[in-house]
């Protein structure tokens, strides 16, 4: 067991974990952050995307021990003071989700994308989401949602 201390969605936590524990398992099983989900074993699907020190990572591809001393933001920490993040709101407004399983990862990656490029073209949005698979929406409305969030200034505010 290894002791880790980190900040998750603004709250400090400290736990003894097996080194083999993946960050996503730590978030889900220890902290009950079940908003972050697991969709594959090869880090292709991006469903588990969270922010580590403000940058998007696939939490199935990070060991919990590697996050020691760092700060994690999950989909559950995105809304501030009960206000949805503009990207969350845009996903709702544009019907950018159906079953919703990819949605937390897709939203977290979209936020990251807008953080890096507040005004992306459609092609930049599509390339920026290449690490996230969705099986329901055909991506059409996801792209629209990111465009809508960008025009609301999501990149600047995030």
């Amino acid at each position: 067991m290894t002791r880790i201390s980190l900040k998750v969605d603004g709250a400090s936590c400290s736990d003894d974990v097996e080194p083999r524990m993946l960050l996503v398992h730590y978030l889900r099983e220890r902290l009950g952050k079940t908003g972050t989900v697991i969709g594959c074993d090869t880090s292709n699907c991006g469903a588990c995307t969270v922010h580590l020190d403000g940058k998007s990572v696939k939490s199935c591809n990070v060991l919990a021990v590697q996050a020691d001393g760092h700060e994690v933001t999950t989909i559950e920490g995105l809304a501030q003071d009960g206000e949805l993040h503009p990207v969350q709101k845009a996903f709702h407004d544009c019907h950018a989700l159906q079953c919703g399983f990819c949605t937390p990862g897709m939203i977290m990656q979209s936020v990251d994308l807008l953080n890096e490029n507040a005004n992306p073209s459609e092609e930049e949005i599509r390339l920026g989401l290449e690490g996230n698979l969705c099986r329901c929406t055909g991506y059409h409305n996801i792209v629209k949602a990111v465009q809508a969030a960008a025009s609301e200034g999501a990149g600047a505010s995030a």
Partner: peptide
Amino acid sequence: RKRKEDQRLITGRTKWTDNIQ
């Protein structure tokens, strides 16, 4: 109509089977 289902899905408050402990 925008979907009723979305609120829980976009905030990570969904109940997937694998969440059950």
